[in-house]
Design a binder for these strands. Structure first.
Length: 868
DNA sequence: ATCCTCCCCTAC
DNA sequence: TAAGGTAGGGGAGGAT
């Protein structure tokens, strides 16, 4: 929106040294002096240093936290990429997969303090001649706006814990147990519970370190967390951006000078250009950066490196167990297709698995495999054993979870230089609406894609593929065609023929069950499915799915990209290593799981109302000993949920409900093979783009309707007071401060330190200036209002930087769903700017309003209601 | 009809 | 050995 800026008179809007910034600096000075009452600042040795503590250390994590605060450093509860990792020892499994170049002994901290200066951390590396990984340097990013945005975002937030650590979990659990049960703590119980929490690798869920150990190694956990992280990253980038993209100019000149420019642009329907970007076999590509000699060979990422057959475990019966899986699948397919279940032919992942002690017996799963491996028939998710059978010279490489995150960062930030109309799908995949971007660049789609892919490959060392289309479905299918390392443009003239040949299984949302069902109806391709009527599809597949399929097989997709995501549920699940002897062990684990969910909820600042417990219980026919080591085996699955009257994030309530749900099931703890704890949301969102959101006095649940087209016209006006009972899934943004008065029905358990200064009425306690790269968000909104008032009264011409700052702040409030505050501040701003009556101040108001309304649309799908 | 609850499916 | 998580959409069937 550079144009927006240009319409302001130049003199009043030059950047830098704005009124607000000066004011904020003063405020921060005040804060740091009054913050001194809480943390006494002894030195600034650790200025610019941030640490993350991994495992048991001396001094303890708590102590290190305090030391960092006293000496000017930053302590992170969750690991961030710039952190020094403080550790005294690390489990082998962890060491294998992480970059060790910044793993430092705690003595570095204590010695530095003793010496009163920051000592060279390299002298304190835990692993001396550590094979330092060629880490990508985020600061190399060219776009300056990204650089600044990202650095502050990294400091300010990090909702996702990629490296889950439970510094407090033992303590918490012991406290909980001490309070109300007779389960002994680890040191009083012999045998099973006797675990050295520091250097023993957790084997089963009985071990207090198990969750952390497991999550550190779980690819699925990482995939999930990374996905959530980058969705949030896009949210954050958008919140912080002024939507000017200086890097576009560079890209444009690069494209023009490359001389390949095609003049004629390809035409897309409805003028939209959607690009889908997907890294090629992501985990493998990242891994190959360190193993270039394996390029061109069949490669798989897996935990198992091992070739040698293992000794048999007592009681394992692969045949019985695998047959149970196949029977169940056959039964399901029989039901779905109407074919007799014993006549159904289908391929299963338990096919071709060798005996436990055979060369091909490994049940380790392949997370990702190279195209050379795929050529041999190997697929992601396949067991290692059968894969080796297909390709005996399959090379394996280990996971590199840090690497995935780094590459993903680079990928996202590369795109974000040019546009923020991004919908994050996962860490290695996204949709981008390029309509506006391409208009601005005035280059062909082809040249743009070529340049973009080249830049991504240069920066990450990993190839990606892109597809273009006029909607998300088309672009996605185009990417599939483009792979590997290619690009494809599904122009509107191609769509019809292209769709005709697409396999139904390739449609997003059509998995094994659906495609089997469709096949039993006699259809394998989109072209063939097009002969079916909407009604028939709906009868067989349900209303929604049928309608979606009807559209999809014609290349239609009415769903727009969603740039801003809102989370609706939080859960934690472990279906591996669950082996309990007693109920107490089971409940203890559920407490840990609840604590995990609770801590995630805290990070997302959400409350939830509906708590679901999922249990996997060994099926009666299934062997007690599972085929896969520590796996869940063949199980029955149970889901039980409770609906609380009030949304909460109280760990004790969650724990209590979860355990009570579990108790009701009367499961023999020895038969338990998996557990999950899920807290769901209940914000309901109103459709209705016409009716603006007005802040509700009594309810913070904003009513919105999800289905955009089957328009439901519920007016927001009738939604005073408590929301209808019917609203389900309440996960509400945690409120505090003023909102407590507005949100009568929500209980918020404050987990703030007790010594809250009474003068500070508001929720957000000001942070210290040095940990506060972004001014306004760290202030209470009332402080912001004061600042705003002072600015308006200053008699000076408004500057662009101040205007932007306010706009950004308010947009962030929108994203945080602090609509009440936005409402007050916007009306305040409107009133005061209009009182002043100068055009330039009116422009300021309009500028801010535009940003706020854009955010409102992104978050709620409708505009904020403003007085008059 | 419309809900609630449990369950299934899909995707990464 | 092995690390089978997580969020979201939606359907079936009973309760209201």
């Amino acid at each position: 929106m550079r144009r927006r800026d240009e319409k302001f008179p130049e003199n009043g809007f030059e950047d830098g040294g704005g009124y607000m910034q000066v004011k904020i600096a003063k405020l921060e000075a005040q804060f740091s002096s009054c913050a001194g009452k809480e943390v006494i600042r002894l030195s600034n040795i650790f200025n610019g240093v941030s640490i993350y503590v991994n495992g048991f250390t001396k001094p303890s994590a708590e102590e290190l936290k305090e030391l960092m605060a006293q000496h000017g450093g930053v302590y992170h509860t969750y690991q961030r990429s710039n952190d020094y990792i403080i550790a005294s020892n690390l489990p082998d499994t962890k060491v294998k997969n992480m970059s060790l170049s910044k793993v430092v002994k705690p003595e570095w901290i204590s010695d530095s303090i003793a010496a009163n200066s920051l000592l060279d951390y390299r002298k304190y590396l835990l692993y001396k001649n550590s094979r330092t990984q060629p880490q990508l340097n985020f600061n190399k990013l060219t776009a300056t706006n990204i650089k600044t945005d990202e650095s502050h975002i990294k400091d300010e937030k990090d909702n996702i814990e990629l490296n889950l650590k439970y510094n407090n979990s033992d303590k918490q659990i012991n406290e909980m147990l001490g309070a109300n049960t007779n389960v002994s703590t680890t040191d009083t119980k012999p045998a099973l519970n006797k675990v050295n929490t520091n250097d023993c690798i957790a084997k089963t869920a009985v071990d207090p370190n198990f969750i952390s150990e497991f999550y550190n190694n779980s690819r699925l956990h990482h995939i999930s967390q990374l996905g959530a992280f980058f969705k949030q990253h896009v949210n954050d980038l958008r919140d912080a951006s002024d939507f000017s993209f200086p890097a576009r100019a560079t890209l444009k000149s690069k494209i023009l000078s490359s001389g390949t420019s095609l003049v004629a642009d390809t035409n897309f329907d409805n003028g939209k250009v959607i690009i889908h970007i997907d890294m090629d076999c992501f985990f493998v590509s990242v891994g190959l950066r360190k193993r270039p000699e394996l390029r061109g060979k069949p490669v798989a990422v897996t935990h198992s490196k091992g070739s040698k057959p293992q000794t048999k475990r007592e009681g394992v019966d692969r045949n019985t167990e695998f047959n149970l899986y196949k029977q169940k699948q056959a039964k399901k397919l029989g039901k779905v297709t109407g074919i007799k279940e014993d006549e159904i032919v289908f391929e299963s992942r338990v096919d071709n698995v060798g005996d436990e002690d055979s060369e091909y017996g490994s049940l380790s799963e392949i997370a990702s495999c190279s195209y050379e491996a795929r050529a041999k028939g190997i697929k992601n998710g396949m067991f290692m054993g059968p894969a080796l059978k297909l390709c005996p010279n399959l090379q394996t490489i280990p996971y590199d979870f840090d690497g995935y995150k780094e590459v993903a960062y680079t990928l996202y930030n590369t795109i974000a230089q040019y546009t923020l109309d991004i919908e994050a799908v996962s860490c290695d995949e996204m949709y981008v609406d390029c309509t506006e971007l391409l208009k601005d660049l005035k280059v062909s789609v082809q040249d743009f894609a070529t340049a973009l892919r080249e830049e991504i490959k240069d920066k990450t060392g990993c190839p990606c593929s892109t597809g273009f289309g006029s909607n998300r479905l088309q672009s996605r299918l185009a990417t599939k065609r483009a792979k590997p390392d290619g690009q494809f443009f599904l122009t509107s003239d191609l769509v019809e023929d292209f769709m005709f040949g697409i396999t139904l299984k390739d449609l997003p949302g059509v998995g094994r069950q659906t495609s089997q069902k469709l096949e039993s109806l006699g259809h394998q391709t989109c072209g063939s499915l097009q002969t079916l009527t909407l009604g028939l599809l709906q009868r067989h597949l349900g209303n929604k799915t049928g309608a979606q399929l009807f559209d999809q097989c014609r290349g239609r997709d009415p769903n727009p990209l969603t740039f801003h995501t809102i989370r609706k549920s939080v859960s934690a699940e472990v279906n591996y290593g669950i082996r309990f002897e007693t109920n107490d062990q089971c409940f203890l684990f559920l407490k840990q799981l609840s604590a995990e969910v609770h801590s995630r909820m805290q990070h997302f600042k959400v409350l939830g109302k509906c708590i679901t417990l999922k249990l996997m219980v060994r099926a009666e026919e299934a062997p007690v000993e599972t085929a896969k080591f520590m796996g869940h085996g063949f199980c029955n699955v149970l889901n039980k949920s409770t609906n609380l009257t009030n949304a909460t994030n109280d760990v004790e309530i969650i724990t209590k409900e979860v355990i009570s749900l579990c108790k009701k099931q009367k499961i023999n703890p020895k038969e338990l093979r998996g557990t999950s704890c899920d807290v769901k949301n209940q914000i309901k969102v109103e459709d209705n783009t016409k009716n603006p959101v007005t802040p509700k006095k009594k309810s913070i649940s904003l009513s919105m309707n999800k289905s955009p087209k089957h328009g439901i016209k519920s007016s927001p006006v009738k939604r005073r007071g408590r929301p209808p009972k019917s609203l389900k899934n309440s996960l509400t943004i945690a409120k505090s401060g003023m909102d407590k008065f507005l949100a009568g029905e929500i209980q918020v358990k404050e987990e703030l330190p007790v010594q809250t200064v009474p003068e500070i009425i508001q929720d957000e306690k000001p942070k210290r200036a040095d940990s506060n790269p972004d001014g306004l968000m760290s202030l209470s909104w009332e402080k912001v209002r004061e600042l705003l008032r002072a600015w308006l009264d200053s008699g000076q011409a408004p500057k662009l930087c101040d205007t932007r700052m306010i706009a950004t702040y308010l947009s962030k409030l929108v994203a945080k769903k602090d609509i009440d505050k936005v409402y007050i501040l916007m009306n305040f701003l409107k009133r005061r700017t209009h009182e002043i009556g100068l055009d330039i101040w009116i422009e300021v108001y309009n500028y801010v309003l535009e940003d706020v309304q854009n955010s409102m649309i992104a978050v709620y799908g409708k505009k904020l209601w403003i007085n008059n």
